[in-house]
C-alpha cells in the first residue's frame, strides 16, 4: 500500500530523482570536519522551529516583553526547554558556522568554481550575527537594554553617517518601544527571509558543484 502511494507520488513529483540528486550525490573521501555545514543547517532549522514556538507567548512591547518571557520560563510547561534550546542553539550555531568556514578556508574549498558559495556563506554568517544582535534585545532586561545601547552606539561611531545609522536602528534618538518592535520584526521576518533565500542558494550550489577534495601534497 505504502509502496503504491509512493510510486503514484513519485511518478508525478519525481521524488526519487530529488532524493538521488540531493542526498545520494557523489562525494570525495572526507572527514568529520565536513559535517559542520549540515550541523549548522540543522541548528538553523532548530532555531526556526523553537523561534516559532516562542512567538506563541512572547510579546514585543516594553510593558510585556520581560513578563512574557518570565511566563515562558516559569508558567508554561517545557517553556524553559524551548527557550533554552533557542538560547543555546544560537551560540552553538555561530560556533559551528565559524568552524565550518575555517574548514573551507584551510582546505581552500572557496576557490574556483565555489567563490560564490563562499560569498553566500559570508552573507549567512552576517545574517546569523544580525539574528544574534536583534534577538539579544528581545528579553528587554538590563543586559539586553545596555547591550543594545552599546551596540547601536558602536554603529553610531561610523564617520559621517553614524548618527543616521544609530537613529534608524533605534527608530529615534532613544532606545524605546519603537526599537523593540523593529528589532522583533528584523528578528522574526526580515533577516530570516533573507537568510532562508541565501541558505537555499548556498545548498543549490553545493549540490550543483559538488564538494571539493581534501587537498593533497600535489595541490
Amino acid at each position: 500500500m505504502a509502496q503504491n502511494v509512493f510510486s503514484w507520488l513519485d511518478e508525478r513529483l519525481g521524488l526519487k530523482a530529488i532524493y538521488d540528486t540531493v542526498l545520494d550525490r557523489k562525494v570525495p573521501k572526507v572527514n568529520w570536519w565536513f559535517t559542520l555545514g549540515s550541523a549548522s543547517l540543522f541548528l538553523g532549522a532548530l532555531q526556526g522551529i523553537t523561534g516559532i514556538l516562542l512567538s506563541v507567548y512572547y510579546v514585543p512591547t516594553p510593558d510585556h516583553a520581560y513578563d512574557s518571557i518570565t511566563y515562558i520560563m516559569t508558567g508554561v510547561q517545557f517553556g524553559w526547554l524551548i527557550r533554552g534550546l533557542h538560547h543555546w542553539g544560537s551560540s552553538l550555531l555561530i560556533l559551528t558556522a565559524f568552524i565550518h568556514m575555517l574548514r573551507v578556508f584551510f582546505y581552500g574549498a572557496y576557490k574556483y568554481p565555489r567563490e560564490f558559495t563562499w560569498i553566500t556563506g559570508v552573507a549567512l554568517l552576517i545574517s546569523a550575527l544580525g539574528m544574534g544582535f536583534t534577538g539579544y534585545l528581545l528579553p528587554w532586561n538590563q543586559r539586553s537594554y545596555w547591550a543594545t545601547t552599546v551596540g547601536t552606539e558602536i554603529a553610531g561611531t561610523v564617520p559621517g553617517i553614524g548618527d543616521f545609522i544609530l537613529r534608524v536602528l533605534r527608530g529615534g534618538t532613544d532606545l524605546s518601544a519603537v526599537t523593540l518592535s523593529r528589532f522583533f520584526s528584523l528578528h522574526i521576518w526580515i533577516i530570516p527571509v533573507i537568510a532562508l533565500a541565501t541558505v537555499l542558494t548556498h545548498l543549490y550550489m553545493v549540490i550543483r558543484l559538488g564538494i571539493s577534495n581534501i587537498p593533497d601534497k600535489d595541490s
Binding site: 516594553p62 527608530g171 529615534g172 532613544d174 524605546s176 518601544a177 519603537v178 518592535s181
Partner: peptide, 11 residues
C-alpha cells in the same frame, strides 16, 4: 516623560 513612537515613557 518622553514620547517615542506611540509610547509615553519616563526616561
Amino acid at each position: 516623560t518622553k514620547i517615542n513612537g506611540w509610547e509615553r515613557s519616563s526616561q
